[in-house]
Write a protein that binds this DNA or RNA. Structure first.
Lengths: 190, 190, 190, 190
DNA sequence: TATGAATGAGTATTCATTCAT
DNA sequence: GATGAATGAATACTCATTCAT
């Protein structure tokens, strides 16, 4: 809670990044059974170093989620001015799900976004909602997505497909077929 | 080892059921971190009693999944001869997702079904696939569901919506809206 | 402690014997890790039946030891009037060790005999000492065993060889060679 | 896995020794029923500390045995160049047995040596056999021990006397008397 | 500042023993 | 009397977290 925004020495910043990377890798491999020691070993740092950067396992996991959320925001924003808003919307959706099969914990990001929506939402999470909403609105204005598709169900669909894709390792074919159904459901009838 | 299918004393059967119920409740509350002790306490039995009925935590969890799968099969089969095959199909889907918000671990059943489909599938799991496939086929014959919707993506969609609904506790409104999209995607294009 | 010497119904006596036999077999197989349940299963009786005859695991084990001790006494006494007292002595020793490789817990009998010697010795244990002492004395009178070999070290040698033979499963050859040394040590010096 | 023979921090080495000592003490007191917790308490360290040094109860016990074996090897080798090879042989035997009455688990070392002899024997165990064999051979060349006494029965005798001495806490008198018999059996006749 | 040794609460599981059937 | 279901204390072991080096 203290914003302690000192610039962090170069090696310290590097260690922080190493830990985050290792944590993602180990989480992907071991799931919830991942241990702090395994992460430290994979990162090539001592256990204490993890705790210097993240006071708690919980804190480390949150940092990962923030990390992921930011990347997701970046991807969404990079499509905000695409020529074809419909394609941008569906491409974004497809990319997100494809990514989920590779890196776990992505689904959590989206899942929690829906929850946070109700309560006080952290800034980063709000950014994500906004970035996605922009994609949605533009696609709707372009007539590529039905007007009665709203954010809650869109986030729900994103979270659902990501969770399942990541848990069951959807292959390309299954991903394509399943999203085809969902996308058709998103398009205007008629 | 020995199949020992003796009928089980009345009190023993009751305890077995108590344990299963408690396990579901505790799993819903604590997730994968649920402890055998917590389950025993919730069931009001000693730790040893759990182990008498289920030699292993793993075995207990599998028993729960089998239990759930069977209930799902029952529900599907009860709709096999419904007058309106289209309504039967969508009602089943809706019911399943609604249930998932109440009882966790339902999603796992469906998730694993997709996986097992490829490899050797246990009998109970195969039953489930068959029961669902019947619903699908009838709905397609009735023209209520598009013909190019196949089992893999149907199971994927069921698993995805159940997982998300259960994790994020979708309320009635969100459930209705989200499924509306998916269902539209399942219908033949007009 | 209450001598409760009611004659025991025929089936009860049979069960008692079954349990004792099973206990020996399981102890030989599983060593100290033997469980009451395994013994019950091997005996083909319920757990409760064991506890009806032996109030405690400890009590069961003691019963086994008493059993064994008695058999050892019988064997010794059967040799008390042998024609060749020297051969009787060494044959007894050899038999005991040979038996130890087959049935565990024999060593305990002899080991404890040495200990009890000092303190108050139970009747059965005293019988054993007496029976062995008779063999020893006769062998000494016959000039086959040195006169300065006394009971304490004789019991120590018996216990030692039994323990080792049983723990390491001495084969016939090793048994013969090792006892040859000990026996030579027992003979009068020429 | 990785041999990781880092020199170990001073306090860590001290704790490792503390654990080994405590384990010996508790094993001597409680026998095979000794619990890891009891050992930790006796050593004045946390449970986790034991597991840092010995990944498994089994591993801890093996470490103790290796420790003991090494000490036994040292003692034997220190007598390899004694002036009187006969005295060296019998002194070694006597020392070993005397030690067994104080520290348990010594018998196991010798017992297992006999067994390992047949199969692949670990290096340390082979060292022990070699060291003892040297004592034996020198004593035989000096005419103090009969030529037909071979390693298998010598190890058997050592194991037997150690086991019994340790189990029944042979006092000095009993030790002397019993070994006198065995030693006479080891001497050349005539 | 980084390291990894130490800690101990928490986990699954076993087993002697009791007691309702 | 016999059975085996229920009990819970005890066991080996793991892992997040702290802190001396």
């Amino acid at each position: 809670m203290d914003d302690d925004a000192r610039p962090l020495r170069a090696d310290a910043r590097r260690n922080r990044a190493l830990v985050l990377e290792a944590a993602e890798a180990i989480l992907a491999r071991d799931g919830l059974g991942a241990s702090m020691r395994a992460i430290a070993r994979h990162a090539g740092v001592g256990l204490g170093t993890i705790y210097r950067h993240f006071p708690t396992q919980e804190a480390l996991y949150q940092a990962i989620i923030i990390d992921r959320t930011q990347r997701l925001v970046d991807r969404a924003q990079s499509l905000h001015h695409a020529d074809d808003p419909g394609a941008a919307f569906f491409d974004f959706f497809t990319d997100i799900v494809e990514n989920a099969t590779r890196k776990k914990t992505l689904a959590d990001v989206l899942a929690d976004a829906g929850i946070d929506a109700k309560a006080g939402m952290s800034e980063i999470s709000r950014n994500m909602r906004d970035a996605i909403e922009t994609l949605l609105t533009r696609a709707q204005r372009a007539g590529a997505v039905r007007d009665d598709l709203h954010m809650p169900e869109l986030l729900a669909l994103l979270a659902a497909t990501c969770m399942a894709a990541e848990r069951n390792q959807w292959d390309r074919e299954l991903r394509t077929r399943t999203l085809a159904i969902v996308f058709d459901g998103c398009r205007p009838r008629g």
